[in-house]
């Protein structure tokens, strides 16, 4: 048993958590401004730069804000779909819907983002559709980012929610009705509290996947950067690894707090 576990646990411990630890340590190093060499002494200078630089603050807030917004939108869109799949649909319709939800995950993520780029572009299908009504699409920017992320991660919200709702016995819904609860009350007092851990479980995916993304912003957000983009340019172009490491700790810290809250909500029992 221990021999079997050694390899995967070793991998997890050394390669995965180890690199996170190195990342965290590197966040306190700094770059020599003249030689561009990494100086391995410890200071908060990177964090100060990030905190004081308005650009960095905007980027961090944009990243977290859009991740939160995408999570809320996905939750709202996914709930009725998951509920229909779990409680209303016939077995046949249910199977078809599960396939329909899973299918987009088979397509390349890049393909899907470029598809959205085409949909949203100036003379794209969305504008063509909206034109007769005198309206036009959002173009590229934050709104486009929210739309694309909400689309990309929706299945990750639907699936845990569907599993969570399916676990609620029908008899509980009948019991609520039996005790005088109409649909709204049954939803608020029975379905929502029981599905809440599943909702949080789904939100871990939608939130963290958005938080760490840097490709979709490049393609559909017209130069509006995410934390990931800054990390990417600092690793590559600017070659300022310590600053990149420091900025990368921000989403990690946010996720740690988020996961702690999620654990309190009991989300891990429904993953």
């Amino acid at each position: 048993m221990s021999a079997l576990l050694a390899a995967p646990l070793g991998w997890l411990g050394v390669a995965y958590l180890g690199s996170l630890a190195v990342l965290f340590v590197a966040a306190f190093w700094r770059l020599d401004p003249f030689t561009a060499e990494v100086i391995r002494d410890y200071s908060f200078s990177n964090f100060r730069t990030l905190w004081e630089g308005e650009v960095y603050r905007d980027i961090a807030l944009r990243t977290i804000g859009i991740a939160a917004l995408v999570t809320v939108i996905d939750a709202v869109v996914a709930f009725p779909i998951a509920f229909y799949m779990a409680k209303v649909a016939s077995p046949r319709a249910k199977a078809l819907l599960v396939v329909a939800v899973l299918m987009p995950l088979w397509a390349s993520y890049l393909v899907k983002i470029y598809a959205w780029r085409i949909i949203l572009q100036e003379n794209g299908p969305l504008n063509w559709l909206l034109e007769p009504f005198g309206a036009s699409g959002p173009g590229f920017g934050n709104v486009a980012g929210v739309i694309v992320f909400s689309y990309l991660w929706l299945p990750y919200m639907i699936l845990p929610l569907y599993a969570g709702l399916e676990r609620i016995p029908d008899s509980l819904l009948e019991a609520s009705s039996d005790l005088g609860g109409k649909a709204g009350r049954t939803f608020r007092r029975v379905i929502l509290p029981l599905a809440f851990p599943a909702l949080v479980a789904g939100s871990i995916f939608t939130f963290s996947l958005t938080l760490g993304d840097y490709i979709a912003p490049q393609i559909v957000m017209a130069g509006n950067q995410f934390i990931g983009n800054v990390v990417y340019t600092n690793v590559g172009v600017a070659n300022n690894l310590p600053l990149a490491a420091a900025f990368a700790t921000v989403p990690i810290a946010v996720m740690v707090v988020y996961l702690l809250l999620a654990r309190r909500a009991g989300a891990f029992e429904s993953l």
Binding site: S171, L172, A175, D178, G181, L194
Partner: peptide, 20 residues
Amino acid sequence: LPSYKRDVNTVFQSYALFPH
């Protein structure tokens, strides 16, 4: 009439107690 409009209450086979 739906069950919430009827003056009856049920003890379900599996009890159907609200676990939360």
